[in-house]
């Protein structure tokens, strides 16, 4: 009897497996795009995707379905390099896409000139999120190195946002120490001494700060900070705008090799271009990204704190150089975090 029930169990489970896996193959008519993105864009793309699908249907009559994958930007780039077949990547910083180009040759090295504004349809910056009333009196970057101030940031090795955090702090220190690299290094090292936890992605850090209640200051994407205010209420947290911060440019691009393999180049390209349209720009603004379109920006400017911004190109000579000096194996971050 046992023999029969075991055999039957195996057959039944085999059939069930076929049924479940088969149901996915049946909907092959619609084009499917995979957008591999970083952590804080979830809400934005969740709203953008159906809007694009609608637009694409109206324009070409074809149905398109967009699938999302989110995680720390470095980790996501790694997954694409390891074979996660993204049609488009929308990551936190240019270097992660450079890595995909360099290590896996999935897209041309000059990808960043293919779309307007360095392939960054929206920008953001780094601000401070503090608990209501700002009990530690944090006003600017130099307050973050004071003893007893606990700073939350994700790990620059795995998170794009964290690399922007790090570079923003470094840029501030350079500017206030007559471009003395040694002083900047001491400053950033002192800041990381005040970091109790390094999460792998921005969203993990948000949860650490907002949900688990750890830390006094959270170095955050501006859009993520504004989202926290929206989700948790302005009675719990407030945003502090530092005197100086970095212009964070999260780029987007087509992954040529995978898009061609899937035959989705046309739709994928349109998906990215539509980000620059009024609809895309307004949605980006709604989710607290700074839109590139000056008309759209003018309408929403009041929601963003006024901060003096510097670019990575001006301060660090571009991502390639910054990555090599600061975040590569054995780079400055490794050296200061070890001590």
């Amino acid at each position: 009897m046992i023999r029969h029930s075991i055999a039957r169990g195996i057959v039944l489970s085999g059939i069930a497996a076929l049924l479940i896996s088969g149901s996915g193959a049946a909907q092959a008519q619609t084009t499917t795009l995979l957008n591999v993105s970083y952590d804080p864009t979830r809400e934005f793309y969740e709203e953008y995707n159906p809007r694009f699908a609608e637009y694409w249907k109206g324009k070409t009559g074809k149905a398109v379905e967009i699938r999302q994958s989110h995680g720390g930007a470095g980790k996501q780039a790694r997954a694409v390099i390891d074979g996660l077949e993204a049609d488009v990547v929308t990551l936190a910083l240019a270097y992660d896409i450079d890595a995909i180009s360099e290590l896996a040759k999935l897209l041309p090295p000059d990808w960043q000139s293919r779309l307007p504004h360095n392939s960054c349809p929206y920008t953001s910056t780094i601000v401070f999120l503090v608990r209501k009333g700002n009990p530690k009196g944090v006003k600017d970057w130099n307050d973050l190195i004071k003893p007893g101030v606990s700073v939350i940031t994700p790990n620059p090795k795995t998170s794009g946002g964290a690399r922007w955090n790090y570079l923003a702090a470094w840029g501030y220190a350079l500017k206030h120490n007559n471009n003395d690299e040694g002083k900047a290094r001491e400053f950033v090292a002192a800041m990381f001494k005040n970091v109790p936890v390094l999460d792998t992605g921005a969203r993990g850090s948000t949860t650490t700060f907002a949900q688990r209640g750890i830390g006094d200051v959270f170095l955050s994407w501006e859009n993520e900070a504004l989202l926290v205010l929206k989700e948790f209420g302005t009675d719990k947290f407030e945003i502090v705008a530092p005197s100086l911060s970095i212009l964070a440019e999260p780029p987007v691009t087509l992954v040529d090799k995978f898009a061609d393999k899937h035959g989705t180049r046309e739709a994928a390209q349109a998906y990215l271009e539509y980000l620059y349209s009024d609809v895309g720009q307004e949605l980006a603004a709604k989710h607290f990204y700074r839109p590139r379109n000056t008309e759209v920006l003018a309408k929403v400017e009041s929601q963003f704190p006024k901060i003096e911004l510097f670019t990575i190109d001006a301060m660090f000579g571009g991502w390639q150089k910054a990555q090599k000096t600061h975040f590569a194996e054995g780079g400055v971050f490794d050296q200061i975090y070890k001590r």
Partner: peptide, 15 residues
């Protein structure tokens, strides 16, 4: 569904 599929395949195999 995916979790059930993973269990339905792995349990008989491991049995």
């Amino acid at each position: 569904k995916l979790t059930l599929l993973a269990a339905v395949v792995s349990v008989p195999l491991n049995l």
